[in-house]
Amino acid sequence: MEKQQNYAVEVEDLTVAYDARPVLWDIDLKIPKGKLMAVVGPNGAGKTTLIKAMLGLLKPVTGAVRFADGSGDVRVLKNRIGYVPQSGSVDWDFPATVQDVVLMGCYGKLGWIRRPRKMDIELTKQTLQKVGMQNYASRQISQLSGGQQQRVFLARALAQEAEVYFMDEPFKGVDAQTERAIVSLLKELKEQGKTVVVVHHDLQTVPDYFDWVTLINLRVVASGPVDEVFHEENLKKTYHSSGALLRSVV
């Protein structure tokens, strides 16, 4: 019914293992273009692994990831994929300013050796404005709060000017103000026709923030529009819980 072009990302029979210990089993996933998709599942379900495998940071044992133009090679697509890693994954005492970090988002377009140009610096200013951090451009990154760090990473991803964004727990440890800012940013990206995949841990907010959801626990339990697949039975299957905890959510 739907044609291939309508999918931003297609994951086919993807199996990923760390040291021969399987983390993801036979993942089949089709992410339609222009959707805000949440990836939810319990701790250790392989959410981060799925994102890293889609980004080509991990080599799968079987299967492949395909992007809209049919290619699965991240190196070809570096300008079309944006990445927001978990903010805890870097050393925030690194000697860099907010602007330095955001500028790194332009490095992919520049390729090896070439230096950032004036227009790249212009772009970083714009993206900082979008996340409400324009006054912090020359601030050392260690002086930022958790929410501000997360916004800097978002600005960096925006500077990539990508088609598909992968975000690993962008709401983790952020204040209410930042959470609102991120949500409105996500909606804006959606309006521009971008596809956004977000690892998310707060089940309560899934129906408000997202229109597409994938429930995983080592394998895909369900994937589809939030109002169709985000119900108690699927959540039970994902979290293996009695459901009492979740009843309040759905």
């Binding site: 293992a17 040291d19 021969a20 399987p22 036979d26 044992v61």
Partner: peptide
């Protein structure tokens, strides 16, 4: 690791 990879592929 090789054995696990085979076992693993068979299960897959």
């Amino acid at each position: 690791r090789r054995n696990q990879k085979l076992e693993f592929a068979k299960t897959t």
